[in-house]
Structure formats: structure tokens, C-alpha cells
Simulated scan of single mutants.
Amino acid sequence: MTKPAKSSNSLFSAARWTALAAAGAVLLSVGAGAVPAGAAERADGAGAPYAATINPRTPLDAAALQKALGTLPDGVASGAMARVGGRDGKWTGTAGAVSADPAASFRIGSITKLFTSTITLQLIAEGRLSMDTPVQEVLPGTLPAHWAPITVEQLLSHTSGLPRPACYEKGRSYTPAEFVKTMTECPEAGEPATGKQIRQVYMGSNYFLLGMVIEKVTGRTYTEELNRRIVRPLGLRHTHLPAAGDTSMPARTLADLPPADPWAWAEGGMVSNAPDLERFLTALLRGRLLPPAQQQLLFEKPANADAKRPFSRAGVQYFTLSDGTEIWGKTGSYGGYTNGLFATRDQRRVLTYSLVPWPGATEEQLTDRQLQIAGAAF
């Protein structure tokens, strides 16, 4: 379970990209099953033509990227790593107290949600779910009978209206079913929001339920499906989901940090490294993991998207930077790391970064540092 006090993109205190506008960027809110033959060849990953999302005349600027990491430690971060890949070239840099090993692993936090949404969309493509399938139909008795139906799409896009897990006990490890009860059996949590245009509100609870849906529909554990559908097919040798209670890390770790507990599971519990994450996001955006109908959902912007931190219908985070560059991916913080994984839709540039925040650093300071890195990368 994600520790709210330590995770700026956890259930309770997501990394505030809302400060991007104030920092000079504009956020727009507009409205392993078998991979289909030919899907891997689609450059756009959705079957529809679109303009390049980055100025092709802008070269990769290694000096600007290194400067954006900062001279560490500096009161904002004690260490930082960034990797830029894609067709425009490759660059990896570090600063401060982190490993210089480009294959060093770290806890990716809520970037895990991209893996969970991908598995869910694969199940939809296989006809085992639909975007309109009510959670109550798949998981009878998990949510109160008097609650209005909550669909798979609402979980994916953070438009479920679910109440916050008000009875969550900080530092305690929960099973997924136990965690759900911290909102369904907690008087302080209240009732879910209802209506056709529920406001988009980011919440990790949605992805705990999706993990449970995946297990119920497939008859396998979430970890088995993760490995079978994504990790092994893509050759992600440094990517795994630790079991409950397993706080160990690989030998090559980005930073020497205390063990992370409790269990964040399908919401934010995975461990990976920059090369694996770049490979995953590139494959996802290119259409290697999903057929066209589900691929298109990655980029469809709901009319009720959060104006400051929007997500697509499939749960992909997106931003339009001040120069018009649109980027797609996910932020994630867990176990002492604050991370991001973003790319242009055409994969000209793919950015993976991880910061080790300095004790006492504010969310505004961390947001500004992430913005500097993104600005230099794209």
C-alpha cells in the first residue's frame, strides 16, 4: 500500500503538476493476449494520422538536460537521473547521490497504473470485459449493493466518484480486499459521487479495484498476468512486482533508500529501470500491446477531464507544454522516489526520470524541478 505521507503521487497527495501553469507550462483539458498482426508496425499506435508533436528542428540538448537535473544536493533533491530516448537520439545523465549505472532499478510508484490499464484494455479486446462493464458485476459483494454501478471505464479514467479511503491506517499493510473496505465500510468515507459527468479525480483506489477485476476475470494473479502479457513479451528483465511483504531491491539500485512498505500492488508497487520503462512506453504508444480500437482509447480525452491534471479514457496522463508539445505517460512516487515517464505520441522523444527528494522539499519545488527536466527533454 502506498504511504500517503511519502508518496507525492499516492492515494492522498499526488505530485502537483497543477503548478505547471504557474511555472510556465499550459495544461490543456480537451474534452498478453495475442497482439494483432500488423499492430507493431503502426507508427501512431491508433490508426489515425496526426501531426508530429515536437518541432523536428529542435536537437537533443545534452547540456540543457544535465543542467535541468541540478547541482545536487540542493535542498530540492539529493539525487536525480534522467534518460531520453526515441528517434531524435539518446541521452542518460545523473546528478548527486544516485548510481551512474543506466540499468539501476527504482520503485516506479504510480507508473504501475499504465501496466494495469494496459492489461485491462487487453481483456476488453479479448471480449472478457467492456468499458461499460460494472465492477459490481465482476466483483459481487465488493462494493455496497446500494451504490450506483461503477464501470471499468470510470476506474480507468478516474471518473468513478469513489470516496477516499478515509479509514486507511498509515503504515499498515492491506490486502486489496481489505483496502477497499477502508472506503466501503468506513462511515467517514461517505458515498460515491454520481451523475453522468462525474468530475475526474485521481485516486489509487480505482486501480486496486482494477487489479481485483483482472484477477477475477482471468483466474490468475495480477502478477501472473503482468508477466505473461507485458514483462516477458517485451523482454523487461529488470521489471517486476514484489510480493506482499517483500521490501528487497535488486543489487543495482538507483539510490540507497530505506525499505518501502506497505504494499502498493497494482496501484503503485512495481520496480523497474529506465531502459525497461522506455521500452514499455514505446511499445504501448506504437501499438504493439493493443489492437486499434483499444489503442485509440489511450488518446481519447474525456469531456470531464481534470483541467490541471488530465487523464485519457484509458488512464494515460497527458499535458500540453507551453511550446505546444503534447506528452503522454504517467508520474509516480513511492519508496523515496519521485518519477515520470512521458513521450510524444510519435515517440520522437521518450523521457524517463527519477528524483530522490531532499527531506523537507516542497511539492512546488519538486514540480518545478520536474518541469525543468521535461522542458529540457522535449
Rank of each mutant, 00 (worst) to 15 (best):
P192N: 04
P192K: 04
A193S: 13
T194S: 10
G195Y: 00
Q197R: 15
R199Y: 08
R199K: 14
R199S: 11
Q200P: 00
Q200T: 00
M203I: 14
G204N: 13
G204K: 01
N206S: 05
N206T: 05
F208T: 15
L209G: 12
G211C: 00
G211W: 02
V213E: 00
I214E: 00
I214C: 03
I214N: 03
K216D: 04
K216R: 14
G219Y: 07
R220A: 14
T221V: 01
Y222I: 01
T223I: 08
E225W: 07
L226V: 08
R228E: 11
R228L: 13
R229T: 15
R229K: 10
V231S: 07
R232L: 12
R232P: 00
R232V: 14
P233M: 09
L234M: 08
L236H: 07
R237M: 14
T239L: 01
H240F: 15
H240E: 13
L241P: 03
L241F: 06
P242H: 07
A243L: 11
A244P: 07
T247L: 03
T247A: 14
T247Y: 10
M249K: 13
M249V: 15
P250W: 09
A251Q: 11
A251Y: 11
T253Y: 06
T253R: 04
A255I: 02
D256E: 13
L257N: 12
P258W: 06
P259M: 05
A260F: 13
A260H: 12
A260L: 04
D261Y: 14
W265L: 04
E267K: 11
M270S: 08
V271K: 03
S272D: 01
S272V: 02
N273I: 01
A274W: 08
A274T: 05
A274C: 01
R279G: 06
F280D: 02
F280V: 06
F280P: 02
T282Q: 02
T282G: 08
A283L: 00
L284W: 04
L285Q: 11
R286K: 12
R288E: 13
R288F: 06
L289H: 10
L289R: 04
L290H: 11
P291F: 00
P291N: 03
Q294C: 05
Q294A: 11
Q294D: 03
Q296L: 08
L298V: 09
L298Q: 11
A305E: 04
D306M: 01
K308G: 15
P310D: 07
P310W: 10
P310M: 06
S312E: 01
R313S: 14
F319S: 08
F319T: 09
